[in-house]
Write a protein that binds this DNA or RNA. Structure first.
Length: 720
DNA sequence: ACAATCGGACTCTCAATAGT
DNA sequence: CTATTGAGAGTCCGATTGTA
């Protein structure tokens, strides 16, 4: 009810409001406001005048708690796959709840986890609550806070953090040379930038070939700053300079050696070396080891991707560990901090965090190190399916989620897959069983299936319905994510079954391996589609990341054991198709894939020939065997092994872009595959299985030394 | 019958927000 | 800057309950 204001009249200064005495207030009776009042006199009570309470700050949305409660129940419905009509379909919720505190009970934690993976209702649907751990400073600030002034808590927190940061900054520790060597002041970075037209060209290449996959750069806001910066390169901020050099590096990396020469008149190797050095220098100038600047971390991330093809994965894994630690200090792994940093910044932080985590998980596997990053211990939400243009700096409310694929489709789907892996039972069973209690319950398990196989099918249904079915197969980006995802899911099926077989008897395990063959075949088919399509040309620099090594290994193992199995002919066909597709783009020439492939394929073919010899049957070798034999023969014609320089050029120039273990996505554990990103890279294999797989002893192969000559393979093949 | 309790409709106040 | 809004603070009617 609105108050009745007396219009017009000049009011005398308001007399102090006299309140009913405490007893009358308590009794809810009329007080005559004399002290002592009639009621107190009558009841012979002490009459105490009441004092006005300081008015609390009005809460903008008093129904907020109710809304939160409602959203919690909606999340539970959602996580249990019960259909309902959500209260809000727009993205208003997260903004409202940005500063809401909630309980710490397990239910809430779980519903938060659910939020983290279900961005369908709102952009920042996650409850930014007390998921994050508290540090010492935080706890001390909590102790001194004014209980009546809850609103100022966050600002005081900021002040405290700033004070600590300033204190460290003022201590003037010279830590710049901890990595990347001593600052080379002699090198003037302004001279290392490309000419203006080349900057634009590199920027465009970066947007098309790289950023469309990662979306770690917000194009509308950065583009203007780059144009502005080009006007006066001398006054570039160190962070923007680092970002620029990382963009140049990635743009160059995404080209083939020939394309690079045509576009810029310099070799890919030279340009990469120059821009990577520039990036190192600019990162040092930015004080990147103590940075809190998201863009500085983005530059470091892009730099690491750009060197990933020429770096030992163990070294790269260590550097990624550093980047992850920087990210954690900046709290970009924490949803509450992402929400608090604003709509645009929060979204960019989420994209960067997932990009870092996914790369780290992948590289850790390759480096044969069990990363603990892809686990349910943090709550950064999966990035939202929105276009960059939907995100503006001044935004207060998150934009509506698109139902159709947006520019961010690859980073959204890849993050969804990563989010699945970090919560799924069969992954946690052997990576971090103790974390299963905090893992989000994965929804949409089809009826009649056990949890583990159901999880993968549930993921497959969800991803297909929510994303892939809505993609346009003629759109290069969509085409790429469709087949990359299907390959990944086939691999998940493969790994899940391996995981399940680990707890069965050796005989059962081996006999069941045939059941997995269709998934291995599908993996290769997906990869062949990517490799043979003209649509994916601009993304071919990532091809090594998707090499279907687990598929090859499984097929070769099964063909070696049962050369005449029902899937044998089909398996040889898909392997031949994939091999040809990969050779067509030189990804197998001289490179590590070749060495791995020859081992696998000849092992399987030897078994097939042995069977044929027993029955006196003449068999025609499949295309893949012929192809590999021809290449082997040609290699023998070459005088000496490929030189280190040639190999390095080949590696850098994209003919075989990735160093041996990196390229394969393999670890060496038990001589068997450590699958690619997000996979259980430490899954147990039966001892009997292991013994039989020892022929695939990757560690024994002379990948790196001896310029990649397959010494083990040579011994094997020539002893025949 | 009277006193005490208390649900809840109502009024008042003023911070937040909209409008100029 | 003023006007408006509406949430929160405060008031107290009157139904209900307790007690002598």
């Amino acid at each position: 009810m609105s108050p009745q204001h007396t219009p017009g009249a000049h009011r005398p200064p308001k007399p102090q409001r006299v309140l009913a005495c405490v007893l009358c207030q308590q009794r809810k009776v009329k007080c005559n406001r004399k002290f002592p009042c009639d009621n107190c006199i009558k009841s012979k009570a002490q009459c105490v005048p009441a004092s006005q309470l300081p008015r609390q700050r009005r809460r903008r949305f008093p129904e907020r708690e109710l809304l939160d409660q409602l959203h919690k129940y909606e999340d539970l419905l959602r996580s249990n796959n019960i259909s309902f009509e959500p209260l809000q379909k727009d993205g208003t919720r997260a903004h409202e709840s940005a500063n809401v505190e909630s309980g710490d009970d397990l239910d809430m934690e779980q519903s938060r986890c659910t939020n983290a993976s279900t961005p369908s209702t709102s952009v920042t649907a996650a409850q930014p609550t007390r998921w994050e751990t508290r540090d010492l400073w935080h706890m001390m600030r909590q102790g001194f806070r004014d209980p009546e002034d809850s609103d100022s808590e966050s600002s005081r927190e900021d002040v405290g953090e700033i004070a600590i940061r300033i204190a460290w900054d003022q201590s003037c520790l010279n830590d710049d040379c901890l990595l990347f060597g001593v600052r080379q002041t002699a090198v003037n970075l302004t001279t290392m930038h490309p000419e203006t037209t080349h900057i634009f060209k590199l920027w465009q290449l970066f947007l098309d070939n790289v950023n469309s996959l990662f979306r770690v750069v917000h194009v509308p806001s950065l583009q203007g700053r780059i144009i502005e910066a080009i006007g006066d390169m001398n006054s570039l901020s160190p962070v923007l300079e680092a970002l620029l050099f990382s963009i140049y590096s990635m743009a160059v990396l995404s080209l083939t050696a020939h394309e690079c020469l045509m576009a810029f008149g310099s070799s890919k190797k030279d340009l990469l070396a120059k821009y990577q050095l520039g990036c190192q220098q600019a990162l040092v100038n930015s004080g990147f080891l103590r940075t809190s600047d998201r863009e500085c971390l983005t530059a470091l991330f892009l730099y690491l991707v750009s060197v990933s093809t020429s770096t030992d994965p163990r070294a790269l894994s260590s550097m990624l560990g550093l980047a992850i630690r920087l990210a954690q200090r900046m709290k970009i792994d924490t949803e509450a901090a992402c929400v608090a940093s604003g709509v645009l910044e929060g979204e960019m932080r989420r994209r960067l965090w997932w990009a870092l985590v996914l790369l780290d998980a992948r590289v850790s596997q390759i480096a044969d190190y069990k990363s603990q990053t892809l686990t349910p211990t943090w709550d950064c939400r999966v990035p939202s399916n929105v276009n960059d243009a939907d995100l503006r700096l001044e935004m207060k409310n998150p934009p509506a989620i698109h139902g159709q694929p947006t520019e961010a489709i690859t980073c959204v789907v890849r993050s969804e897959l990563g989010d699945f892996i970090r919560n799924c039972t069969w992954h946690l069973n052997h990576t971090a069983p103790n974390l299963k209690v905090i893992a989000r319950k994965l929804s949409s398990i089809p009826q009649g299936l056990n949890m583990e196989s159901g999880e993968v099918l549930g993921l497959e249904n969800m991803i297909e319905d929510k994303y892939l079915q809505r993609c346009d197969p003629d759109n290069p980006l969509h085409f790429m994510i469709i087949w990359e995802t299907r390959q990944f899911i086939a691999k998940c099926h493969l790994m899940q079954i391996y995981s399940a077989l680990a707890s069965t008897s050796p005989t059962t395990a081996v006999s069941n391996l045939d059941a997995v063959v269709p998934y291995a075949i599908h993996m290769l088919e997906c990869d062949t589609r990517i490799m043979t399509s003209p649509l994916t040309k601009r993304y071919r620099w990532t091809a090594n990341y998707n090499f279907p090594a687990p598929g090859y290994m499984h097929l070769a193992e099964c063909l070696g054991r049962r050369p005449l199995s029902e899937h044998a002919d089909q398996a040889w066909e898909v392997m031949s198709d994939n091999c040809e597709a990969r050779f067509a783009h030189s990804f197998l020439d001289r490179g590590p894939f070749f060495e791995m492939l020859t081992r696998l394929v000849f092992h399987a073919w030897t078994a097939r020939e042995a069977v044929a010899a027993q029955s006196g049957e003449a068999v025609e070798p499949p295309r893949i065997v012929t192809k590999l034999k021809n290449v082997m023969h040609q290699k023998d014609q070459v005088v000496g092994p490929p030189s280190t320089e040639l190999l390095a050029e080949g590696l850098i120039a994209g003919t075989s872009d990735i160093p041996p273990r990196m390229a394969m996505g393999l670890g060496e554990r038990n001589g068997f595959v450590a699958p690619e990103i997000g996979d259980p890279y430490d899954f147990p294999v039966h001892t009997s299985l292991r013994a039989d797989m020892n022929f695939l002893d990757w560690a024994a192969m002379d990948w790196v030394t001896g310029t990649g000559q397959p010494s083990a393979w040579n011994d094997y093949i020539y002893s025949k």
